[in-house]
Design a binder for these strands. Structure first.
Lengths: 217, 217
DNA sequence: CACGTTATTGATCATATGGTCAACAATCGG
DNA sequence: CCGATTGTTGACCATATGATCAATAACGTG
């Protein structure tokens, strides 16, 4: 028995304790996935009794859903900001693919994959998932529309393209999670697929800022 | 307590019982996902004691991995056969997309999604996943290569295209699982993406056998 | 500094899981 | 028809989970 002993926890204000618990849940989920979130694992991480964690949350489902939302919404905002600062839509597209397919985001991918699985048994989580998917979709749709308006993208269904992008990226990341062995190659073909969707000339994405990822072919 | 009473089970040959258990596991997984596979749930489905199920399997991990393999390998063979009987590679491609994105395959998608999540905690399942992904990849790569040989597809990396296809399809299906509300539209843009990957003329896939799915746009 | 508010704890439930094993009984061979 | 083989059971364990609640002790306030 790994009996990590624990002194009595200091008394904190409800707000501080609440935030501490949420933060612990977030980092734990990024480390080991949403399914690793239990009253006891979270309590242990901040050196506190499971009962206390329980005391600060209506139930685990809510905590898990909130943690999911916190993690994903942060990512969405991050990427949205990144896209906003790109000079052209095409450059933004290249950055988008590079960023989202980066293996360093695997921790978030694990959260997504486990959320899909767990969401089937938790209404709270299912709702959170839909909410974040919509948020992602909004960002991507807006981005595609801008590209179309700028005359760089060509499609009559930015909405569908946005969903498609999202699905493709998620799928490739989820696969990469299991396909240890040939990392890096992930998404080498994605550029051409996206070019096809958005009517870009072939190679338009490979030549921009995708220097590193496109070397393999 | 739903106390479904149970008469004493008839005595069967080890082979028959073993197959019955595997069949029960398969149908249960298709109904409720891999995570619903427990000694008790399987036992209940064939009106038998959990101990008996346990007796016929080294452990649950093995049973789950075997069930996953059974379900997915059947699907792979099914699709491979379907592809083989198509007149041209392009027609095959259209059929492939239609088939795999069909909402009726959601039961298999659930199995995949849960496998990705559970595979992180079960070596047996992780191995099975890799095996089936390779099987899928082999089928798709072979198909793409044929298309290239026939002069219909254009790519210098059939291997990467095959992985890409797999990832895109899985991702879109996984998303559709959560995005109740607008079914059917799934993959409306996938055709163009694939056209881009394989150097087909725009619309080549939409006009073939995709009559039903392409109507929305 | 005393006291009351309340954050925190420890003990405890109820439930679900995988897994084991001696005992039972169904079937088959003689 | 009887005995041996063995498929099957029921009764258990050990563990992990979410959750509750009276009791405790830390902190702010008067």
């Amino acid at each position: 028995m790994t009996r990590t002993l624990r002194r009595r926890a200091g008394r904190k204000s409800p707000e501080a304790r609440g935030e501490q618990i949420q933060a612990a849940a977030r980092s734990l989920a990024l480390d080991q996935g949403l399914s690793a979130l239990t009253l006891r694992s979270i309590a242990a991480r901040i050196d506190v009794t499971p009962a206390l964690v329980s005391h600060y949350q209506p139930n685990m489902d809510a905590l898990i859903a909130a943690t999911f939302t916190a993690i994903v919404s942060e990512e969405v905002e991050e990427v949205a900001a990144l896209l906003a600062e790109q000079p052209t839509p095409t450059a933004g597209l290249a950055v988008l693919l590079d960023t989202l397919l980066d293996a360093e985001r695997d921790d978030v991918t694990i959260v997504w994959v486990e959320a899909w699985a767990m969401g089937r048994r938790s209404d709270a989580l299912a709702g959170a998932i839909r909410g974040e998917m919509d948020a992602w979709h909004d960002v991507l749709r807006g981005f595609v529309e801008q590209g179309v308006a700028a005359g760089e993208f060509e499609t009559d269904a930015p909405d569908a393209v946005a969903w498609q992008l999202l699905g493709m990226i998620d799928g490739l990341n989820a696969q990469a999670l299991v396909r240890w062995g040939d990392p890096g190659e992930r998404g080498s073909m994605l550029g051409r697929a996206v070019e096809g969707m958005l009517g870009l000339r072939r190679g338009a994405l490979a030549s921009e800022s995708r220097a590193g990822a496109a070397s393999a072919t």
